[in-house]
């Protein structure tokens, strides 16, 4: 879609008009978006406020303590879930530090000669 028929030798009036129309369209489109997003914000913040209003604001200290204690007890009762599966992996490597004589035997202490 072409808005104007352009040739290479444009009069300056047309060039300025193109620039003016161009920047004006940018502003108009983005201004439209400003209002759409404001409407957006208005709808969603109102919904958010309405949801917040449903929640009782005033909670007594005893209730807070009860909630915190319940959460504490619940979390203390939690354990890590384990798979309950024991697997013995067959080692293809024959050598291991566990059967190494070098590591198993106490090496002779080196004598430090005093000068």
């Amino acid at each position: 879609m072409t808005l104007f028929v352009i040739d290479n030798a444009l009069p300056w009036s047309q060039i300025l008009l193109i620039a003016l129309i161009g920047i004006s369209i940018v502003f108009v489109v983005l201004l439209l978006l400003v209002y759409v997003m404001r409407l957006f914000g208005f709808v969603f913040t109102r919904e958010h406020k309405a949801n917040n209003a449903k929640v009782p604001v005033a909670i007594s200290d005893e209730e807070v303590v009860a909630i915190v204690t319940a959460l504490k007890l619940y979390k203390a009762a939690l354990h890590d879930q384990e798979s309950d599966m024991l697997t013995i992996n067959r080692m293809t490597r024959m050598y291991s530090p566990w059967n190494s004589k070098i590591h198993g035997l106490t090496p002779c202490p080196e004598r430090i000669r005093r000068k």
Partner: peptide, 11 residues
């Protein structure tokens, strides 16, 4: 989204 006026600065 929080500050739609920013669109104008972008324009």
């Amino acid at each position: 989204i929080a500050n739609p006026k920013s669109f104008l600065l972008g324009a």
